[in-house]
Simulated scan of single mutants.
Amino acid sequence: MGLAARIEKNWYGRAAGNLWLLPLWLIFVVLSTLRRFWYQLIKPQPSAVPVLVIGNIAIGGTGKTPLITCLVRLAEEQGIRVGVVSRGYGGQSDSYPLLVNEATPVAQCGDEPALLASMGIPVAVDPNRARAVEALAGKVDLVLSDDGLQHYKMHRNGEIVVSDVTRGFGNGWLLPVGPLREPVSRLRSCDLHLVNGQDFTIQPVAYMTHQETSAPSTLAGQTVHAVAGIGNPARFFTTLRALGVKVIEHPFPDHHAFADQDLEFNDELPVVMTEKDWVKCRELNHPRIGFLRVSALPTDDVEQKLVRLLNKLRETSNG
């Protein structure tokens, strides 16, 4: 096991194994505290459109992207026009802000923006998220920020923090001793804290290939190569096993840029991946790849809270 893997293992185990990182931890605590204090002192200018941040305080995947698509659906049901802004991690554009559409190369915008844009959602990408928000002003009634909880340069009108029921907040330490970007006390200042696996679940809704769309249950009993370049690959593998799939695991780093050789396993078994990975692999035209489309399903109580928050923000005027 490599050094990085051992450090991450200790994030979700005994912090004692990472205490040798205390000098770096102290630097992180000082810098992050000063940074937040600075933006509390020098508040960013309000944007022309209300902003709701969907982010986390811990490193790793928590199901933010399916939750964002759920929020888009709920907003549309309320007659609220919604757009999404993102840093565009994994992409590199010659100019920003970048308005993303279905034809925008993933190499320019990143995988998550490409996925959201493929669903017809207005998306703007910019490392400076405040600038991306302004690019959507006048086009939408509300902007959702995909991550960016710690991007204090961007004004926000509401915050949703997302965590995972299995990982929680790990050993409770800030980086690099633990997985936290901010202390757990940060939850007190957000509008909602939603736990994936408790307040909402990620449900598979379709299995899709180049050729056809079918029910997820069609995978039951099959042995597949499961490919996942997301923040928490184990969650995807667990979802497949719950469908009765025999899984050969192939985890990759989050936002991995796939190449042909990553999907060659010298057999005829299907290759199943997440939709976020599919947007990077669809041009490869590999004959046996498909993806599992998923949807976030909130509890009735949480759905009501989300609808109330969306309507409250729609009435917000930053002017």
Rank of each mutant, 00 (worst) to 15 (best):
D146Y: 07
G63Q: 11
N18Q: 05
K312Q: 15
L22Q: 04
V224H: 01
M1H: 13
W20N: 03
S93N: 10
E268T: 06
G158A: 13
Q222G: 02
T166N: 08
C70G: 04
N10D: 15
L115N: 10
P50G: 07
L175T: 00
T218R: 05
V84K: 08
G120R: 08
A259C: 14
R87M: 01
G231Y: 06
D164C: 01
Q211R: 11
A242K: 14
T218K: 02
V125L: 05
R167P: 00
Q78A: 14
V271C: 05
K64I: 12
V49H: 11
S86N: 07
V51Q: 03
P251F: 03
P66Q: 11
R6F: 10
V85C: 13
R81E: 15
E77P: 05
V51D: 11
L174Y: 05
R14G: 12
L240N: 04
F236L: 07
I68W: 12
R156C: 09
D164T: 02
D146P: 09
A220G: 11
Q222N: 04
L297P: 09
L174D: 05
M273T: 03
K276I: 11
V279N: 09
F200M: 07
T299W: 04
P179A: 00
C109N: 10
L71E: 12
G290F: 03
R6V: 07
R181L: 11
L31G: 06
V72F: 08
A75H: 11
F200P: 12
P298L: 06
L52N: 08
C281N: 02
N196W: 02
M273I: 00
V195F: 08
E77M: 13
G55D: 12
P46F: 08
A114L: 08
G79K: 03
D147C: 02
V133R: 07
V84Q: 07
F200R: 04
L136F: 10
Y89E: 09
R81L: 14
P50V: 09
G231V: 01
G221A: 05
G90L: 09
V227N: 04
Q150H: 07
G170S: 01
R314M: 10
E264F: 04
D94K: 12
L3F: 15
S317I: 10
S217E: 15
Q222S: 10
F291D: 04
A257G: 12
L306K: 06
R167A: 01
M119Y: 14
Y39D: 03
V53Y: 08
W20H: 13
V302Y: 09
S93E: 10
N196F: 02
T62K: 10
P50A: 06
E134V: 03
D126W: 06
L144T: 13
Q198D: 13
L98H: 05
A137N: 06
G60I: 02
L136A: 04
D141S: 08
T239L: 15
H255T: 02
V302A: 03
T62D: 12
A220I: 01
A137C: 11
D141G: 11
D164A: 05
F265T: 00
P50M: 05
L192C: 09
N196Q: 14
R87T: 07
L297K: 15
L115H: 07
L136K: 03
S189R: 12
L309R: 03
A75N: 05
P183T: 09
E76C: 13
A130Q: 15
E315L: 13
F291R: 02
R241F: 01
P253K: 04
